[in-house]
Nucleic acid binder design. Structure first.
Lengths: 220, 220
DNA sequence: TGTACATCAGTGAACGCGCGTTCACTGATGTAC
DNA sequence: TGTACATCAGTGAACGCGCGTTCACTGATGTAC
């Protein structure tokens, strides 16, 4: 939405050329979210959406896959921010904070399913954009680490508060994340599955090794 | 492998035209497994692989997406067979049988990661091949049900044998499946994640609500 | 204050490619009489 | 036992399309003197 629609875009002033980069990124993100597939996010479709000529993109991205890669990087940063925000908004109780992070993760996937699929779809993973200067190999493989870190931290706090047990915090955090991911991904992909209404509890409660009941009256 | 290579394919005899259909399916499956993406499975690539002219495919499939759909249907049947075979090969102990089903599921995903991704990737889900006669809507949405049924049955047997608890067998089976799927999918997609060595246990043990220790000396 | 000039932010036309799909056809093979 | 014919299993050439990318360019805008 906003001003990114059809053709007559006015050219940026000198020194503000970098603004087109942001517009390209936004258009690609919107095409991805609206479309049914990342195949819809072509270089020419992006150009069409902002109302520029297709070659103009090459001033800002080395090639087509670099755009998708940038969208994914941005999406992971966005996800991490949302997890932190949900955690901080959940108050002081460690179990509620952990649960808030899990819910925020699932919400993100449900709000932007196509984006979620591409983030964890791995096609950009094999991209040749690596050889370009756009991103280093470490950055790429550590993309999800920050978000996973938020989850692991929240799980650790819940363990420290006596809600759960863990013999290996990283291992249990990864297992929890995989459970969330399984649900998030499958929901993003299939509209017509008869999900049990309490499916989130049936995944989260066992995987966090919940032992003590919640301290407050809120359900967990 | 086998005889599906380059060009000089000899034409089938009268009445055996249906054999080309099987060859098309096999070629599509192999292209999918070998390639890095289902984008590689084009109609023309399939034709090239068997050594036929591209239009010959239209005698057997209404359009391009019908090929992928047929590959997916076949793959789900294959997966179900493997799960049953693993269960039956695991002996009489209900817990070991359940664990064998889980392992077989994860093995399948690891052996043919690209195929697994497409099975649960959902792109064929939106396919217009539905409107063709190739498959009914019920068949499509119930594709994974049989495989899930094998898992649920094994879980139910383990509960009956006193190994685990369950307040809702279907719900718990779905949760277990989602945990397996999360790992299977993420492994199929990312090569470079530092998986904990006991990641399978960390997912399966909580999700089956294991209460009693295994009856035999075998690890679970 | 004017003006030459470098730079910036793009454009327009064109390329070659592989794709899905269509169309009219071809030649071998079995069948009816 | 021969022969006309229908059917089967495919073929070859061509279509239009959208794509990523290249190339030489253009015109506005700031800057140096």
């Amino acid at each position: 939405m906003s001003s990114l629609e059809a053709s007559p875009r006015e050219r940026n002033r000198r020194g503000e050329g970098a603004r087109l980069r942001a517009d390209i990124l936004a258009a690609a993100r919107e095409l991805l979210d609206e479309g049914r597939d990342d195949r819809d996010v072509t270089l020419r479709a992006v150009a069409r959406k902002i109302g520029i000529a297709a070659p103009s993109i090459y001033k800002h991205f080395p090639d087509q896959s670099a755009i998708m890669l940038a969208v994914v990087v941005e999406a992971f940063e966005d996800l991490t921010l949302r997890l932190r925000a949900a955690r901080d908004a959940a108050g002081a109780d460690a179990l509620q904070r952990l649960r808030a992070v899990c819910d925020a993760y699932l919400d993100y996937a449900q709000q932007v399913p196509q984006r979620y699929r591409v983030m964890f779809g791995g096609v950009w993973d094999t991209g040749q954009a690596l050889s370009q200067q756009s991103i280093t190999r470490e950055q790429l493989s550590s993309l999800g680490e920050e978000a996973l870190g938020v989850l692991a931290e929240a799980l650790g706090a819940a363990v420290a508060a006596g809600y759960c047990t863990s013999t290996d915090l990283f291992g249990d955090a990864v297992a929890l994340w995989l459970g969330l991911h399984g649900l998030a991904h499958q929901r993003a992909v299939t509209s017509a599955f008869p999900w049990p209404t309490d499916i989130v509890d049936r995944i989260v409660v066992p995987l966090i090794h919940l032992t003590a009941p919640p301290a407050t009256t809120a359900t967990v």
